[in-house]
Every structure is written in C-alpha cells, then in structure tokens.
Design a protein around this nucleic acid. Structure first.
Length: 424
RNA sequence: GGAGAGAUGGCCGAGUGGUCGAAGGCGCUCGCCUGCUAAGCGAGUGUUGGGCGAAAGCUCAACCGAGGGUUCAAAUCCCUCUCUCUCCGCCA
C-alpha cells in the first residue's frame, strides 16, 4: 500500500511512475484525493467539537465539586446537542476511511527508477548468465520420466493420499529434498541470516499483513473451522513477525531465513505445460527475508541476488538472471530479479527464484517502522525477500541435466548432505 | 474440553467515575559530578491522525487487550470477544 502522504503531495509523480507498470492510476487517485479531503474535513470538525465537549465536561466536574449544582446542570444541557453533532460526524468517518483504504489498496507499488518499461516477459532484461548447459544424449528424459525410472517421487501415490499436486518423495528422492533444504539453510546462515522455523498456518491478520488477503484469498488453503490459512510462502509468517513493530535503526538490516513447506491452490492455472514438478500444490522452499534501512535497501537487494546466484552456481546449473520489466512485475514489487535454470530435457527455462525489494509498500500495510537514534519521528522500513531456493524446479533441473547412463549424478556441493553421489 | 484469576507505557507496577496519557520504580538518552569496571544529582523519554509553521516547534483529538454500551465525563461501571496464567482432563 502506498502512503497517503506520497499521493497527496506527489500525485503526478505517482501517476507517471505507475505508467511504467502499464497502470493508469489517474481515476483512482482523483478519488483518493477526494476521499482524503473528506476524511480530514470530518476529522477537523469532530476534533473541534470534541475539544469543546472536553472543556465543558471539565467545567461541570469542577462546578459539581464546588457544589454549584444549578450551573452544572445548565452546562450539561449545552452538551446534549454537541454530543449529537459529534456522533453525526464520527459515524461517517469509518465509511470514508474504509472507502479510502479500498482505493489505496488498488494502487500497485511504484517501480524503482531502474525498472524498464515493458508489456510482458519478453521485455525483461537479462542481467547475467552462468553455468554451462549439459550436453545430453538424444534419448534424454524429462524429469517426470526420470522419477518413475528411479522410483524417487510418486505422483500417483500422492493422489491416493491427498490429490493431484501433492507428490510423495521416496528413498533417495526424499533424502535429496532434505539435503537441498539443509544446504540452502547452511549457506544462508553463512551469509548472516538467522534461521526461523515459523508456523505454517497463519491467522487472518497475517494474511492481510503481507497482502495475500483479501485479494488472493482463493490461492490459499483455508482452514475454515479455525479461520487459519496454510502459508503459500514463508514470507508470510517471517515478515509478519515485524507487523506493528518499531525497530531501532541500529538493528537494521534484519536478515532472516526460513525453510517451510508452501501450499498453493493454483486455482485456474493448471495446464499441460505444468507437468511433473513444474507446478505443485505443496512444495518446499527456503526463503530469505530482509528488513532494511530505506537508504540501503538496493544494496541489500544486490546482496540477496548475489547470494541466490551463488546457490544456483554451486549446484552447477545453467542459469540466467532477469530484471523484470514494469509489465511483468508483481503488484507489490518495486524491483524484481527472477532466476531461471535451464531444463535440458524440457528445453525451457524454469523460474526458481524471485527476489524483490518492496520498499515501504509492505511495511506500510504491516506498520513496520524504525526510528533513527535520537529522533522522535518514525519511518517505514523497506522489506525484501527472495526464494533461496524453491526446491521442485531445482530438483527437476538437477535430475534432467545430470542424467547419465549410470544414473543421476549428485552435484558436488550436495554430496556431504546426501551421503550418496548417484541416484540409480 | 471443565473451573478460577488476570490483561495498564520498553519492562515492573499504582490507579475503581472528573484536574489521568496515566504515580512510583527499572531501563534508556542527554548534562553535571566523581578517577577506577560503579554510584550520585538534574532534565528528558509512547503511538496514531489532524491544524498552524520554511523549520525548530506549538496545538487539538484518539489510544490503558479488542469491539460495543451507560454517563455531561470511563483505565475506572456494564456487555461481547480474544489472549495469558493456575488447577483438572486429554495428549506427541
């Protein structure tokens, strides 16, 4: 959510920046400014009346004390009409407030100055590439055939237990999952992240805090009896730790890392091109989250990108890093880097990480602020997060790119975690 | 799940209808003093939304778990909810 102050003071700037995201904000902003003026007018009036009311009440108090009953009664009569006037004004306030908020949440985050305009994924900018594509034999198999061949991931069994998109990992397939999780967490710890193990169901407030609610309600599994939601990403609980919190500037940056299973209903997005591990309802992911000082958040973003890159590189996967154009960026992001790994057997790029700076967009909703030493004023922090990394597509790429006659080679960096060097 | 107690500022803790945004203590910040890992003295120290101001600042309103009610007036009385603690039950 953008701050009302920014819109009030710089509406032209906001409109122009949102054009980079192909978003026409003019109409909404006109409405916002109107509602904001209405809200303030109501507040000024009711504050004035309230002030008068408080003055009278105090007067009545001291009159009663002095035993001047009649004068007190006279003053009481004055309050009756005041009271009604105040009520008339304050009754209107919640409606205006919520209408204003409803408009505010419709505005996407402003893209950072470096973000290129563009309509679709075709306009994304390739920042870097790395890793060599493996030369595979003609009969190379896609991962959905490999997992059957070696009996390491079982979709049919998952359907029996739960439903489509809930695979069962078996034997070395399960061990590979555990190895990747530990590897990612350990690398994060070395990079200064504190490990968090959060709940994987959250309440409604948390859903609102990170913006999953009310918009993406249908994307989350909802535990209706208790009104809890299964998390779609660790970002939700880990970022909500800082909901309604005021940090000291010296505490920044806060760097947390968490492994959690993630649950996504993916309603409506199921299709032929999402076979196998490409899209699941339940998957594992290690997420890095930073709370940064606004002056340093882009340095933090670069640092996170470098960290994610080091992971992909350590696994020996061919990858590329894209800076998303305005049109391909998410609603909440100010700047996003996507990581893709090359899937040799599918002959396509698979997105394995999305690393973004949200600037103060999330923080405004979360009410996460910080205070500079010695200053009275609070300011919104900047929040950032990124996958480091999501497992399924990494597994898919490892399986496909590392297939040999003898079996699937485990990347060197993982061997100490798996305890074996081949799946056969 | 059953019974009881409670929820006040960063923390502890007073406050049961009026001058309480809230005593006192701790902590923290600044200043003074003192020469020995510390003490003493003084001052300051919540959040949010407005108004005025170039700014420092001044000022108004709201907030004592949340929401509602009674009253001229509520931290204080009433109702609902949430959470915490203790005991019992169940249990990885």
């Amino acid at each position: 959510m953008l701050t009302i102050n920014l819109i009030r003071e710089n509406s032209e700037f906001v409109i122009n920046r949102l054009k980079v995201k192909n978003f026409n904000a003019e109409e909404i902003i006109v409405k916002i400014l109107e509602l904001d003026a209405q809200r303030r007018e109501l507040q000024v009036k009711s504050d004035q009346l309230q002030s008068e009311m408080n003055r009278l009440s105090k007067e009545i108090g001291s009159l009663m004390k002095d035993g001047r009953k009649e004068e007190a009664e006279a003053a009481k009569k004055l309050t009756y009409s005041l009271k009604e006037e105040i009520k008339a004004l304050t009754d209107r306030l919640p409606a205006v407030d919520s209408e204003l908020r409803n408009e505010l949440v419709r505005l996407p985050n402003l893209p950072y100055e470096k973000v290129a305009p563009g309509k679709s994924a075709d306009d994304n900018v390739i920042i870097r590439q790395g890793g060599a594509a493996a030369a595979l034999p003609e009969n190379a198999l896609p991962h959905w055939d490999l997992i059957r061949k070696y009996d390491i991931i079982d979709f049919e069994l998952g359907i029996k237990l739960t439903g489509a998109g809930f695979p069962v990992y078996k034997g070395r397939g399960a061990k590979l999952q555990r190895a990747l999780i530990s590897f990612f967490l350990d690398r994060g710890e070395s990079a200064g992240y504190r490990e968090i193990m959060p709940p994987i169901v959250v309440n409604e407030d948390s859903g609102f805090g990170t913006g999953q609610l009310p918009d993406k309600e249908g994307q989350m599994y909802h535990v209706t009896v208790d009104n809890f939601y299964l998390i779609p990403t660790a970002e939700v609980p880990v970022t909500n730790i800082y909901r309604d919190i005021i940090l000291n500037a010296e505490e920044l940056p806060v760097k947390n890392i968490a492994y959690t299973p993630c649950f996504r209903r993916e309603a409506g997005s199921w299709g032929a091109h999402v076979r196998g591990l490409n899209r699941l309802h339940q998957f594992d992911k290690v997420e890095i989250v930073q709370i940064a000082h606004p002056d340093n958040s882009y340095t933090a973003l670069e640092e996170m990108v470098n960290h994610v890159e080091s992971l992909v590189a350590a696994l020996g996967l061919p990858y590329r890093i894209l800076r998303l154009c305005g049109g391909d960026m998410s609603f909440t992001s100010a700047m996003t880097y996507d990581f893709e790994v090359w899937s040799a057997a599918q002959k396509r790029w698979l997105e394995v990480s999305s690393t973004s700076n949200f600037e103060s967009f999330q923080a405004n909703r979360l009410k996460c602020r910080f205070k500079e030493k010695g200053e009275k004023q609070t300011r919104l922090v900047h929040t950032l997060n990124g996958s480091a990394l999501a497992l399924p597509r990494i597994v898919a790429a490892i399986l496909e790119n590392n297939q040999t006659e003898a079996g699937i080679r485990i990347p060197d960096a993982l061997k100490t975690y798996t305890g074996f060097d081949i799946i056969n």
